[in-house]
Write a protein that binds this DNA or RNA. Sequence first.
DNA 1: CTATTTAGTTAACATATGTTCATCGATTGC
DNA 2: GCAATCGATGAACATATGTTAACTAAATAG
Lengths: 187, 187
Amino acid sequence: MEKIRQFFGEFVTIDDLDWEIFSSKLERAAFPKKSVILEQGKKERFLSFLEKGIIRFNIPKVDYDFTFAFAFENTFFSAYDSFLTQTGSHYNIECITDCVLHRISYKDLEFVYANTSIGDRIGRKVAEDLYVKKMKRERSLLEDTAKKRYMDLLSEQPHLLKYIPQKYLASYIGIRPQSLSRIRKTI
Amino acid sequence: MEKIRQFFGEFVTIDDLDWEIFSSKLERAAFPKKSVILEQGKKERFLSFLEKGIIRFNIPKVDYDFTFAFAFENTFFSAYDSFLTQTGSHYNIECITDCVLHRISYKDLEFVYANTSIGDRIGRKVAEDLYVKKMKRERSLLEDTAKKRYMDLLSEQPHLLKYIPQKYLASYIGIRPQSLSRIRKTI
DNA sequence: CTATTTAGTTAACATATGTTCATCGATTGC
DNA sequence: GCAATCGATGAACATATGTTAACTAAATAG
C-alpha cells in the first residue's frame, strides 16, 4: 500500500493520522483473470487502487463486446460515474489478467471525507487527474487516426500491451479487429 | 450569482459564511462575441461560471481551426488541465456569442480551499461532474456515428445550436464541414 | 495430447468520411 | 450600399473503416 501513499504524495501531503484513517478502510482483494469485478446494471461500491494486473471497462452488446477503457497498475479505477451517483453502472469491469487491488467502499470513503482534513482534497485530485486524462483521450479520438492511436499505445504501454488481446485494443481505438489487423500489416 | 449557488446546491449544502468567502472572490467579466478569453500557450488563471453566452474550446492549426468542446450557460468552464497544473494551455477559449461570466482566480480558489470547510468538496464535485461528462463523450465518440452525434446535439441543445456556426459543430462531432453538409442533406 | 473453442488474418465488397475545387449565399468592414 | 471575406453546399474522386465470410493460429478444457 506504500504505492498508494506515493501516488497521493505526488500532489498532496498526508499526515500520518489521516493516512491511518484512510488506509485502515482499505480492503485487499484478488481476482483471477477474466473475472468480472463489476457487472453492468449494478452499483459501483468501491474506489479501487490497482496494485497488480490489467483491467478493462466494457459494454457487453448483443453483437459484440465493446471495450472502451483500460486501467493499469498503480492507478485508481472505478465505475466512477456509477460510484459517484450511486446508480447502476452502464458497463462491466473485468480483469484481463490476475489482479490484486486495494479498495475502499462508498460508505467508508464518505467517512474519510468527513473525518480527515485531506479526504475531499484527495477525492478532488483523483477526479481532476481522471478528467485531465479523459481530455487527452477526447483530443486523440477527434484528431488522430486509428493508426496513430495504435502506435501511441505501442510506445506508451509496450510492456503491458502484450497481455491485452487485440480485439480489446481494436475497440479501444475505435475500430473493428479486422481493421486493426489491416493496420498492423502496414506498420 | 444565485445561479451558481443553485448549481452547487444540487450536490452540496453551503453555509452562508462559506458562500460569502467564495462569492466575494468572484469577479464579473464580460466579453464580446469572437473575443479570445484564453490564448493557447498561456496559463489558465480562472475557473469561470458562464452566466450568459456560448464558449468554444479550439486548437488553431495551420490548415484549420479545430473546435473540440463547447460550454453553455449555467455551467463552469476553464482550461482546467492548464488551470490545475498551472502550465500553458494546449488550446484557446473563445466566445461564440457575447458572454458574461463570474470567475475566481487560481490564487483565490486556493484560498477558498484552505479557508472553507467546503472548498475541496466543491472542487471535487466540479471535477467529478466534468469527468462524468467526458466519459459520456468518450462513449459517444467511440460508439456513435457522426450523424448520431449531430442528431443528439440537435435534440439536446436545439435553442443554443442556432448560434453556433456549422463548421464548429463539424469538428466537434469529428468530421469536416463538407461532411456535415452531406449529413444534413440526408436528414 | 487432442478436440474444441477463441483469436487473429485475409480478401472482396460496401459505406462513411476526407480532399479538392467550384459555386453560391451571408456577413462584415468601409 | 458595395466590395471583400467567410461560411455553407455540392460534386468527383480518394482513403479509411465496416461487413461478411473463409481460413489459420493460438489458447483452453477435458
